[in-house]
Design a protein around this nucleic acid. Structure first.
Length: 591
DNA sequence: GTGAAGGGCCAC
DNA sequence: AAACGTGGCCCTTCAC
């Protein structure tokens, strides 16, 4: 592909080019930066293209003159980027949004993200890749040379090849969007695409904001936990080696407690009926009969917290901001959920000793808000089940209400055991639990488990029917959808019973889990609109939870704003069931 | 040494 | 025989 492009490095050239571009509906948009992290480098090039003409703006000469965040010479550029129109077409717009926000002081407005669109269309197909070269090849059938991507963008003089590469990336965006839009339309993905695009800037902003972790607090807690781990390790070592001591001529044999093979051997030597795997839920039932198993589970839960989050999490504290700027993937799962890494702040253990180290900075406070039972409310909405909906409408403890209905007794007569059955089933049905698993987790016999499940589904006929239909539907259609139209595709052979069973479970779970993700994303958009007018800063999200940091002088208003955004978002998708959001104002990430 | 696979546990 | 959905990250093991 030949591209007509123009290198711009002064005010006059920029003004002239932008004059031509500002009335366009769409512009291809890209940046070249000297680093991947906006805290580590600067923006070298900004490229804009209407498909016919492409401009490559070299920011270096502007930077040499002063602060590019405020200089009047760049006002036109900042405006075209922040305006809703023209819509900027970018691949992984979060990246460019972070850089323009941090270095140009400009919040990107009007986004079409070809990466997100490609992921929506692939709908969970693991074989598809979504880098720009692959996406271009898939939708346009043309090859894109990315060899200059990692070249030195800080050189005084950029090579012709570098500039041409930069121009091509932006120019490709315009025809690429046209092809992608066709596919979004034919797949019924326009609404969800809009939902996702609206979410890009809130997430970019959140990543720049970061989440404050108090390092001293963390180290202190770590010391305590390490001591505890050593103690438990020693005890476990003693209990396990009792079984192999006879085999060792030298007395006590050392067992690597982190080795599944060695631990399994040792357990067998002690006469423990070790199941196929030694995963927690398999071992749990044995814990009450075998103290060594209980000790092992204790060791593993302590060890996990140390190994996974130990010292390494401190390395993620940015020296400039003193905060953790984790990496969020907007479509991390095919259900639409976010995933998070480096570090995964969606996976911090619940224990207060860990969470209390995540807090507001001096002078601020946190607002912690989470949806109450959002997935079950979505299931109630979808299934239209009168009893299930009533249990929510009553406003009482949901699991108790459910237990009362299932066991046909008064709420006040529900025993803790009955509530526990109901609770586990309520959660389990969302995943397509089977009676075997239910029996194992509750400790009742298989037959008893089947009985309880039969009662449960007899109470909630509508729910039962919806789940069956969802399972059948996915086999017919080979896809499942959420309320926003988000899609997940399934591939299986007619006779592959395992895959079919798995697809059925997915067909039940994906619409629920995915609609919950839709709602959270919608809430982030609504929240962002009001946050920009206040000091409130989004700092973390965990699937059904949003955490905002705000000046301690005005937490009540921020809390109301957050709750309002979350409730409104959910009500766009859930109408028959009340939505409940629990809000806490706290200095620390604890409840 | 490095990298991938397997197994395990954390979050929701 | 029978698996309860989505992720990330750790450790061990094993191949090169």
């Amino acid at each position: 592909m030949e591209v007509y492009f123009q290198l711009i490095n002064d005010e006059e050239g920029l003004a002239k080019a932008l004059e031509e571009f500002k009335s366009e509906e769409y512009l291809g948009f890209d940046t070249e930066t000297t680093a991947l992290d906006p805290f580590d480098g600067y923006i070298r090039l900004v490229q804009l293209s209407n498909g016919k003409n492409t401009i490559v703006i070299d920011l270096k000469p502007f930077m040499d003159k002063g602060d590019i965040k405020t200089m009047p010479e760049l006002e036109g550029l900042r405006k075209i980027l922040s305006d809703e129109k023209p819509i900027k077409i970018a691949h992984n717009a979060k990246f460019d949004a972070k850089w323009t926000l941090h270095h140009l002081g400009t919040e990107l407005g009007g986004i079409f993200d070809t990466l997100i669109a490609s992921q929506l269309i692939a709908a969970g197909d693991q074989d598809r890749r979504h880098n720009l070269a692959e996406v271009t090849s898939f939708f346009l059938g043309t090859e894109l040379d990315k060899s200059e991507q990692v070249s030195d963008w800080s050189a005084d003089e950029l090579s012709h090849s570098q500039i041409e590469y930069a121009a091509k990336d932006a120019a490709t965006m315009v025809p690429l969007r046209e092809k992608i839009v066709e596919k979004l339309k034919s797949d019924g993905l326009i609404r969800v695409a809009k939902l996702e695009f609206d979410c890009v800037v809130p997430i970019a902003t959140m990543e720049l904001n970061g989440f404050y972790l108090n390092a001293d607090c963390w180290r202190e807690q770590l010391e305590k936990v390490k001591k505890e781990q050593e103690k438990i390790a020693l005890e476990l070592q003693g209990m396990l080696s009792a079984g192999v001591a006879q085999a060792s001529l030298f007395g006590v044999a050392e067992i690597n407690l982190d080795s599944k093979a060695q631990v399994t051997d040792a357990l067998k030597n002690l006469g423990v009926p070790v199941p196929e795997t030694t995963r927690g839920w398999q071992l749990q039932p044995l814990a009450k009969d075998y103290p060594v198993v209980e000790k092992l589970l204790e060791y593993r839960s302590v060890a996990k917290a140390i190994t996974s989050f130990g010292e390494t999490i401190l390395e993620f504290i940015n020296p400039e901001t003193g905060r953790i700027h984790a990496d969020f993937r907007q479509i991390g799962a095919p259900t639409g959920r976010f995933s998070c890494s480096k570090p995964n702040v969606q996976q911090i253990p619940h224990g207060e000793e860990y969470r209390k180290c995540f807090r507001a900075e001096e002078g601020n406070t946190l607002i912690i808000a989470d949806y109450s039972q959002i997935e079950l409310r979505i299931l109630a909405e979808f299934s239209n089940d009168e009893n299930f909906i009533d249990a929510f409408k009553s406003g009482e403890d949901f699991h108790s209400s459910a237990a009362a209905q299932v066991f046909n007794i008064k709420s006040e007569e529900v025993t803790p055991e009955q509530r526990s059955f109901a609770k586990r089933l309520n959660f389990g049905v969302v995943y397509g639990i089977g009676s075997q698993r239910f029996a194992l987790m509750t400790g009742v016999s298989q037959m008893e488990a089947e009985n309880i499940m039969r009662r449960y589904f007899a109470t909630y006929r509508g729910l039962d029917e919806w789940l069956r239909n969802a399972g059948n539907r996915v086999i017919q259609e080979r896809n499942a959808r959420t309320a926003s139209g988000r899609m997940m595709r399934f591939r299986f052979d007619e006779d592959d019973r395992k895959k079919i069973a798995s697809a059925k479970r997915n067909g039940k779970n994906m619409p629920i889990q995915g609609t919950s993700a839709d709602i959270l994303k919608r809430a982030l958009h609504l929240l962002h609109q009001v946050n920009t007018k206040t000091s409130a800063k989004l700092v973390n999200i965990v699937h059904d939870e949003i955490i905002v940091e705000v000046n301690e002088s005005e937490p009540e208003q921020a809390a109301r704003n957050l709750e309002q955004a979350m409730v409104s978002a959910a009500e766009e998708y859930v109408a028959k069931v009340p939505i409940k959001v629990d809000v806490e104002i706290s200095k620390e990430w604890t409840k």
